[in-house]
Amino acid sequence: MVFSRTKTPLFFLVLLATLTTVALGQTRVGFYSTSCPTAESIIQSTVQAAQRSTPGVPAGLIRMHFHDCFVNGCDASILITGPSSERTAPPNSLLRGYEIIDTAKTQIEAVCPGVVSCADILAIAARDSVLLAGGIARWNVPTGRRDGLVSRASDTTNLPAFNDPVDVQIRKFAEKGLNTQDLVTLSGSHTLGTAACVLFSYRLYNYNNTNGPDPSIDATFLTTLRNLCPNGGSGTTRVNLDTGSPNTFDTSYFANLRSGRGVLESDQLLWGNPTTRTVAQRFLGVSGLVGLTFNVEFARSMVRMSNIEVKTGTQGEIRRVCSAVN
């Protein structure tokens, strides 16, 4: 059966109660409740201030958290600067929002020195970014992560890529303890943000060396994308990943896939695969399938992802600044 509108509020309450008490790995909700009780409010106000001046903040912080967790776990190694650090690798070269995490860290250090990790700041900031874009009212982020000591660009080679086939995407997520529903759900974060033309222009003009477009692209949308990314034009031009409501956290992304309007090949392929398509259809409330509430499932998957290979206890350290080890 499909969940009715009247049942959704109760479902939200059950989820929020669950996420309030959950402890995954060795992280837990309320880790800083006595050691730094103002940490989360400082992070939230920092993200809000940044969003007012730079509307693209939510997408950048969500993506940064994702890229951090998929490389040696959620340990803020992506924030470390250096000539061969993670943030210099091609998949991370266009990420935005580092200065927001640095600002939050500086403010927190002023009131709670040496207590709150950069990894936790990034996880909380990603949650707050979803809230700013109209996502679920709130979910509780288990905290207690410690910061990693190593950041290497060479470790980013297994990040999910814009042209990964579905079986490769599923494998990469499974290697991190995430299932196929997590894959589709977290891909839904592409309801926010943009992609540079260089990442998908091959789909418009020479897909699989055919000298023609990817046949899965809607014809009208193909014209739109070609106008935005002309053949031989600048590969740095950016295009909204969600052409329906690019600044709102909603299910428009999945509706785009259904219509052949996925910008990245890895996204559109999710609709072409029966298993991943079924999950997307459940978010869209397709008749005959048990419905899923995107905001609820996204919160659940984010909590799972944010506990990938976390460092806790005496592992790692609490950095004094997020861009360098102590």
Rank of each mutant, 00 (worst) to 15 (best):
V168F: 03
S306M: 09
L257N: 07
V296D: 07
M64E: 02
T312Y: 01
G97M: 01
Q48A: 15
P213Q: 06
G262Q: 14
D167L: 10
G260A: 11
S4P: 00
L95V: 01
D182S: 12
D164G: 09
S77F: 07
E86W: 02
G60F: 01
L61N: 02
R304M: 01
F66Q: 11
I80R: 11
G212H: 06
L24K: 04
A126P: 02
G60K: 03
T237R: 12
S301F: 02
G244A: 06
F298D: 03
Y202D: 13
S252P: 01
T251C: 10
P91Y: 08
S129A: 15
I318H: 03
D102C: 01
F249C: 11
G134A: 04
S266A: 15
L19H: 04
S85C: 12
R52I: 14
C36G: 07
C112T: 06
R52N: 15
Q107N: 14
D218L: 08
I108W: 09
R238E: 06
A104W: 02
T21I: 12
G177R: 04
F221L: 04
K176G: 03
L178T: 08
F12G: 01
R127V: 10
N247M: 07
T278G: 09
T106W: 09
V116G: 07
W271I: 07
P91V: 09
M1P: 08
T251D: 08
T191W: 06
F173H: 08
I100M: 01
R28I: 04
L186D: 08
V321E: 00
I136T: 03
A39F: 10
S33R: 15
V111N: 06
P58K: 10
V310E: 01
R171T: 14
R152Y: 07
T46P: 00
I217T: 07
S35F: 04
R28P: 00
V71A: 11
G233W: 12
M302I: 02
S189W: 11
D214W: 06
V111E: 12
G260N: 11
N256D: 15
A196E: 09
G316T: 02
K311H: 03
Y98P: 00
T248W: 01
P113L: 12
V2F: 05
Y202E: 11
G272I: 06
V290F: 15
I136V: 09
A17M: 10
N307Y: 00
Y253V: 13
T54Y: 13
A104F: 05
N295D: 15
V303M: 02
R171E: 14
Q26G: 04
T34P: 03
V321T: 04
H190R: 15
D214E: 09
E99Y: 01
H67T: 02
F162G: 04
G188K: 14
T180E: 12
P160R: 12
T276W: 06
D214A: 12
